[in-house]
Each structure stands twice: as C-alpha cells, then as structure tokens.
Design a protein around this nucleic acid. Structure first.
Length: 590
RNA sequence: GGGGCAGUAGCUCAGUUGGAUAGAGCACUUGAUUUCUAAUCCAGUGGUCGGGGGUUCGAAUCCCUCCUGCCCUACCA
C-alpha cells in the first residue's frame, strides 16, 4: 500500500508496464495520466491516442490491448475498475475498499511530509523576497513579494529543501544624502522611537522637498552622500543607526504577517564585491564599453543583442545589475545554493532574463556551476478602476494600514456573527479571531490568484464567507474541529479496525479529494504557483461542507461513525497542513 | 518602432501545458435550518473562450493575422 501514496504516479507506472507487455515502444509512449472528469472515473490515461496517431493505428484498439494487460495486473485489480471510453481514454474508477485503505494508511502531516520530502531533498535554495527600501514604510506594493515568497519557502521546506530566506533590502544609494541632511536638523526623537519608519520617511520627504527649493540644501545633501560613500565614520555610524531602526520597523510588520528571514543582506553588503564582477566580466570579454558605460550584450538574443545590460554607469557608479551579479556569486560561493529564486514584480522580467544570460556566460567562463535560477514574478494589485491601487491622496496605501483595516473589518463581522448566534465570547478571543481572519484574508486573496496576472483588490470579496476566501476555509476547519469536541470518550479508538468502506456519494467524493492532495502538492511546487494549492483547499473545504450537510458523523452505527471520523481527521490534517504552507493558522472556533 | 503579458458568463476569476458536454464565487431565480456552528448546503438561469484564418481524431490551450488594454525597451530598482 505504501507505494500507492501518489495514486496517479503509481497508475502511470502500471500503465507503462502494461503498454510494454502489449508491445508498445516505451521510448515513444507517454501514459499521460491525469485526474479524470468524475463522470467517467477518477483517473484517466490518455496515452493511447497520441501513440496511435503517430503509428497510424486505431486508438481504441490500442487502448483495448493496454487495458487487457492492466486487467491481468494484480496490483491494479484491487484498486480500480477499468473502462475505455470515446476514442481511447482508459478510465480508472477507484474501489471503495482501496479508498478506505488509503485513508487508513496515510495519516497526518508526517505521512504527507514523508513522501513530499523526497521532491526537493538535497536542494539548497536561496529565496530572495520582500526586498523593501530602508527608511520607508512598506506599502501594498510589497505584499505580493512577501506573501508569495514566504509560501514558496514553506513549500520548499515541506518538500525537503534547505531554504535560506534572504531580504535583499535597498539600503544604499542617493536618498541618503537628503535623509541625512534633514535627520541632522529636523529629527523628532520621540516620533523616531514610536515609529522609526514613519519618522525616517518624513525626514526623507522633508529633505527632498527642501533640496528642490534651495540649491544650497541640495549641495549639502550631495556632500552628505559623498561623505557616506567615502566611508566617513560619522556618516557610517548614522547610516548604521538608520538601518537598524529600519529593520526594527520592518520586523513589526513581518511579525504580523508571520514572516521570518535568515539574513538581511542588502545592497550595501555587496558594495565591496562589485570590483570582482567588473574584472571577471571584462577579462572574459563578456562585458564591453558602450557610450561610456560598461555593458553586456547578448548577440544570440533577438532583443538583448541591442538592449544592453548596464553593469556600470558612465559616471562609474554601480547599479542594481552590478549588485545582482555580485549577489548571485555570493549565493553560490557562500551559501552553496543549488537554486536561487527571486520574487519580484513582472516589470523586472527583462532585467532578470539579462541577469540569467549574463550569469550563464560568466559562470561558464569562470568554471563555476550556476545555480538553477528562477525569477518568480507577479502582476500588480489593481483597484476597482483597473489601475494599481492608491489611497485617496494618491500615495501608495501603507501595508500597516491595509492590515489594520482588514482586522477592523473582520472584527465587526466576527462580532456580529457571534451576536447573531447568541454565543458568548470574551474580548481577547474576539480580537484574536479578528486578527487571524483579517490578516489571513489579505494573504489568501493574494495567494489564491494566479501570481503572473494582475488582480483586482476588493474588500467585499476577500472578507466574504462564500467563495474562495480565507474566511471560508477557516470556517470549514472550525466545523471539523467542532465535531471532535462533540465526540465521546472512546469514539476515536481503533478507528482503522472499526471503519467500514465508504458508500455515500459525499463520503466517496471527500475521500477522493483527500487523496488528491498529493498531486496538487506536486503541481504547486513544480510551478511555484500557490494558487493551485488554494484552489485545491477551496475544493476540499467545499466537498467537506457538502459531506457535512448530507452525512451525520456522530451516528449509532460504529462502522459508519468510525469511517466518517477518519475522514474528518484527514480533512482537518490536510486543511491545517495546506493552510500552514500558505502561512495561515487555523482557529478552534469562529 | 521592437518585445513581453493579458482579453473566458453581467462582475471577479480558475482551467493540471492538446483531451471527453469550458468550470467556480458574486449577482439573479428557487428549495433546505428546533444544526456534529446555516459564516452552510441542494437545484436553476447565464458562454460565437476578443475577431478571422490554419494545424488534427480533438483547440480556451499550438501557428498566422487583425483589434483592445497594461508593462518593458541605456545608465532608478
């Protein structure tokens, strides 16, 4: 039974064997196993069609010959009933006895981890996500990178990889001159302690506007910047203070979002590592001078043969291309990364394609192994007007304010629901529930969307209790939990031996959905697209709700009760595991 | 000018890489509740998958072309 954990994969291996003994050429034959339309079965193998096409034979007859071999297969016999439909689809309908065995055998997060843990074993992945600038409040624009990045880290860890979470903060560059000018003259010490990012951002804006109005301020700002870049000790001390305060401020939001980092290696960290990049790229002839700048062209590429990758500006300064190159090298040499993932918005696609091409040539020339590089990109969050969301004043909406508003809205809704139900709840728990619902709703709204597309932000949608939302999933989890609270002592003993095979349509649907988690995990990790997991969890919750409405769990019949309790346990385990991968905790009640 | 991404129900979105009669939620029309939490569930209405051509047993998916929107395109990140 152990090797049936991934049902589709196992069936694929049996189909291949059957095809081979039916005389097919396995070098060409692809079983093409996938979930089936429930009207026809649970799993389908479509490989006979393209194979017949290639060999100009009758696909249905070919499917028939594979099926004949499968029906002789003892491994398949107890698992599924087979049929052929249409032009040659082989359909597998799982038998209730097998379904029960599966549900009994693969219990809990441990079993899930055991199999998933093979997927990314021996990988060491540096995930670069979040990446805000220092001395600035984070705004909505940062949420996708943070939430998607954290989920990818959790998924990879679940699948056995070692993960380094790196926050590549923007902590170096021109804004510091103006900030320091204002900091030295206009600092509000109390405000800085209360909310460092708010005060630093105020000071930067102040310095910036003063410099715009007054040429002498601009000149003094320039001097501040020069002093910093020359490593003046006073400037460096101030720079470090600003950074410490900034990171401290960022962390208050990361705590709310339940996000952690292993390191904060910002742009400043790489400033003494760019010389090596220039030298190596020049020596190997990859980089060249153009219009005073040092650039890389890729002649083989239709566009990047003309569009340069600028690695040193004509004024001699480095830019983000330079630090990104240095960063790739550091991640390889210091972390020994097998994979590097950078999570940013889709507008930076060109940049990272050029980075990847350049790194391939550079690493090859220097006889280094290049880590597998993925630019995990995402679309923008739009308002109802279809344009990127802004506050009424036209400024970006602050992340902190967005989260607070969500919690406040959740509070009102949750309180109302408890009042409607006449259920007692103290203020502390109410706040806790509101906080979980509010924050989860924001995260889930983002994760449930295909990350490569833009999406439209809507309070009504993300906090709704219908549809593919966090509240719906959280509610489903609380309903399962409430069943366990109602059980009597002994109800959970010897479930495996007491359980009878599943019969009702709702039981079978739910059990099959439970089995389907394995395939979803594969798809999600392969594509690094969390919305596949979200869609699955939503379907699982929906299938559970239908089961819950139609099949009472706590019944007199011991076999029936046991098998349903078992199903509830698995549902809850998967809901909890899946949600935790998304960075969302579950609630006892709501 | 060149390139990328997108266009699916009135609205918001899925669609497992070419599979069977294109799916959800909202909205609309219905039915179910002294509940293991109805924040739920059952059923129904709603589609020339932007338009047109092509490839084949089979196309929302691949190719060509046109229309529309967003983004990138030398020294911001």
């Amino acid at each position: 039974m152990k090797d049936w954990f991934d049902v589709a994969k196992k069936i694929e291996s049996r189909v291949l064997l059957a095809a081979e003994s039916a005389g097919l050429d396995l070098a060409v034959f692809d079983a093409d196993v996938r979930p089936a339309d429930p009207r026809f079965g649970d799993v389908q193998a479509n490989g006979a069609l393209p194979y017949a096409k290639r060999h100009k034979t009758n696909p249905r007859q070919l499917a028939q010959s594979i099926l004949a071999k499968l029906e002789e297969d003892d491994e398949v016999k107890g698992v599924a009933t087979l049929s052929i439909a249409g032009p040659g689809f082989i359909n597998f309908t799982l038998k209730p006895t097998f379904i029960l065995e599966w549900v009994k055998t693969f219990s809990g997060e441990t079993a899930l981890r055991e199999s998933a843990g093979q997927l990314k074993a021996n990988r060491k992945v540096v995930v670069d996500f979040g990446s805000p600038n220092t001395a600035k409040q984070m705004h909505v624009g940062h949420i996708r990178s943070i939430v998607i990045g954290e989920t990818i880290c959790r998924l990879l860890e679940f699948c056995g990889a070692k993960v380094v979470r790196d926050n590549h903060i923007g902590d170096w560059g021109t804004p510091y001159g103006k900030l320091f000018y204002a900091y030295k003259r206009e600092l509000d010490q109390e405000a800085l302690e209360n909310d460092p990012l708010e005060e630093l951002e105020r000071l930067y804006k102040l310095g910036s506007s003063l410099a715009n109005e007054d040429e002498s301020v601009l000149e003094e700002s320039r001097q501040e910047l020069v002093a910093l870049q020359n490593g003046d000790s006073q400037s460096m001390a101030l720079w470090e203070r600003v950074n410490d305060l900034s990171i401290q401020g960022l962390k208050t939001i990361y705590e709310v979002l339940d996000v952690t980092y292993d390191c904060y290696l910002g742009e400043s960290f790489y400033r003494d590592k760019v010389e090596q990049v220039y030298n190596e790229l020049c020596e190997s002839g990859i980089a060249e001078e153009s219009k005073g700048a040092l650039v890389v062209f890729h002649p083989e590429h239709k566009r990047y043969s003309k569009q340069p990758f600028i690695i040193r500006k004509s004024d001699g300064a480095s830019n983000y291309a330079t630090t990104d190159l240095a960063t790739m090298l550091y991640r390889k040499e210091h972390f020994e990364a097998t994979d590097v993932i950078i999570v940013t918005d889709a507008r930076q696609k060109d940049h990272f394609e050029q980075l990847d091409l350049t790194c391939q040539k550079w690493f090859q020339a220097s006889k280094r192994d290049l880590p597998d590089f993925s630019h995990v990109m995402f679309g923008s969050i739009n308002g109802e007007d279809g344009k990127p969301i802004k506050s009424r004043s036209g400024d970006p909406i602050r992340l902190r304010e967005l989260l607070n508003e969500s919690i406040e809205r959740a509070y009102v809704i949750v309180k109302e629901k408890f009042e409607e139900r006449n259920a007692a709840i103290d203020e502390e728990e109410l706040m806790h529930i509101a906080s979980v619902v509010g924050v989860s709703a924001i995260k889930y709204a983002d994760l449930s969307q295909n990350r490569t597309s833009d999406y439209q932000f809507s309070w009504n949608k993300l906090l709704a209790f219908d549809g593919n939302t966090a509240p719906y999933l959280l509610y489903a989890a609380t309903r399962v939990q409430s069943i366990f609270r109602k059980l009597e002592a002994g109800d959970q003993n010897d479930l495996e031996s007491k359980a009878s095979p599943y019969e009702t349509a709702e039981e079978l649907a739910l059990a099959k959905k439970v089995i389907g988690f394995v395939g979803t995990l594969h798809t999600t990790v392969d594509t690094l697209k969390p919305h596949f997991l979200c869609t699955y969890l939503y379907e699982l919750a929906g299938t559970f709700s239908a089961f819950y409405a139609a099949n009472t769990v706590i019944v007199d019949d011991e076999g029936q009760k046991a098998r349903r309790i078992l199903l509830c346990k698995r549902t809850l385990e998967i809901l909890k595991t899946g949600l935790s991968l998304l960075g969302i905790p579950t609630l006892e009640r709501m």
